[in-house]
Amino acid sequence: MSEATSNASKRYGLLGRFHDADALIVAIRTLREEGYRELEAFSPYPVEELNEALGVRSRWLTVVTLIASLAVAAGTYWMVWYSAAVDYPFVVGGKPLHSWPPFALIAFVLAILSAVVTAFLGMLCGNRLPRLYHPAFNITMFERASNDAFFLLTNVGTLTHDEIESLRSRLTDLGAEDVQEVPP
């Protein structure tokens, strides 16, 4: 606390609390139109329109997952083929050395595994998780983000004092029930 008062000019952002998801979406859309780009939203449950309102058009995770699964599938198939047909040719049950049905099965299974692992790890990286500290944790009301309140966090690192004050009143105009400063 004493740190925050002594360093009053340094703020991470403004945290606005909204009553429902619709108000939050409207506020995000309006602020984005007005040129605020560094917005973060928090809600107790997934809100479908949120990504679109925030302008999150991230495709890299799906693309990376697809590429990883295809690469693992091809690699696995090659590995099985190489070991069964080239390196140690061994006839099993009178089947051809290069028998695609079981090979495809193993390639498919490992492709699914790699897709799941890539998507999970990519999600963690993309969300910068696990994250033990976030400036918003300093605000007591933020606990309600996992209960009944919707939050909009606006980064004000580059704004002047007056701009921050106008943003504060803007948030109130847009229906924020409470606006608090978030220390870094």
């Binding site: 049950g93 009178g94 089947k95 049905p101 079981p102 099965l105």
Partner: peptide
């Protein structure tokens, strides 16, 4: 595919 691989394996 399950049907194929079962029938194919049993032959």
């Amino acid at each position: 595919f399950s049907q194929l691989i079962i029938v194919w394996s049993a032959n």
